[in-house]
């Protein structure tokens, strides 16, 4: 059961402005049946350039209907310049907040509004910009970047809640994480590069990273790892437990252990396995 605010419930049970304006000045359509929600927004301007009517049609859950209804109420009386400034957060705030998992409903409202304004101005329909990252929901890298920046998101689940990306098969999680890391400036290797480590410092840092970042993950799968030696940038390790006989141990070594060590210790490290 979702914890919807009374305002969400009210706008869902008694939606305002349902329908289509026949001679609309601007129309914006977003979403699809496959995605599980879709919104068609139309608005009409008065002689002073203010929105005097806005209507919506929505296929979707209670919060999608409530967000659409709220948006049409907010729009009335606004100039297009004012309307342009409405963010998804404003829509959520108008409703007294939305459950985190439902923030994408407010983003859908904002997207439809943008499209409707573009439509009115006669600007060519913006092509999907950027490169599709999430195949399941057709979300691009630029859209993901935007939602992260605008809402200060920090985790993949947040991105999924806001724009659905990553909510299907999960194949794009790595790319989303990279985008998050870049935006949060979490590129640790850059910082580490500046400091020249002594051998002792390097070994200590490698051991710390193994303990903190790497071993817990391996242990979850019944495996473990041991540092054998360090020679310049070459790190020699022994895989233990289930990791030892695992057919994908080389992947573990390169994609996981080496990546983490490069991130937290030094960017030039090469991890090599010592077989017992």
């Amino acid at each position: 059961m979702w914890e919807y605010t009374d305002k969400v419930k009210d706008h869902f049970l008694n939606p305002r402005n349902v329908g289509v304006i026949d001679d609309a000045d601007g129309t914006g359509e977003v979403g699809s049946l496959a995605c599980g929600d879709a919104l068609k927004l139309t608005f009409k301007l008065d002689d002073n350039g203010k929105i005097n009517d806005a209507k919506f049609q929505t296929f979707g859950c209670a919060s999608a209907i409530a967000s659409s209804s709220a948006l049409t109420e907010m729009l009335k009386g606004m100039t297009l310049e004012e309307a342009e400034k409405i963010t998804n957060d404003d829509i959520a705030a108008y409703l007294g907040g939305l459950p985190k998992e439902k923030m994408h409903c407010s983003v859908m409202g904002r997207d439809a509004l943008e499209k409707a304004i573009v439509c009115y101005r006669g600007e060519p329909e913006k092509k999907i910009e950027g490169e599709i990252v999430c195949e399941c929901f057709g979300v691009t890298d630029l859209e993901i970047e935007r939602v992260i920046k605008e809402n200060g998101l920090i985790a993949i689940e947040d991105v999924t809640d806001y724009i659905k990306a990553g909510g299907g098969c999960g194949n794009c999680h790595e790319k989303i994480q990279m985008t998050l890391d870049t935006i949060m400036g979490k590129d640790m290797s850059e910082k580490k590069k500046a400091v020249k480590l002594t051998n002792i410092q390097k070994i200590k840092l490698i051991e710390e990273t193994l303990e903190r970042e790497i071993k817990p993950g391996l242990k979850q799968d019944g495996g473990n790892i041991e540092l054998v030696d360090v020679d310049g940038d070459r790190v020699f390790v022994k895989l233990l437990g289930t990791c030892a006989g695992c057919s994908i141990s080389q992947v573990t070594l390169k994609d996981y252990v080496e990546k983490k060590l490069r991130e937290f210790v030094a960017p030039d490290l090469v991890v090599e396995e010592v077989k017992s």
Binding site: P15, V18, E29, L33, A38, L39, Q57, T58, F59, I65
Partner: peptide
């Protein structure tokens, strides 16, 4: 709900 939907 169908009347509210853009698919109708």
């Amino acid at each position: 709900l169908r009347e509210m939907s853009p698919f109708c």
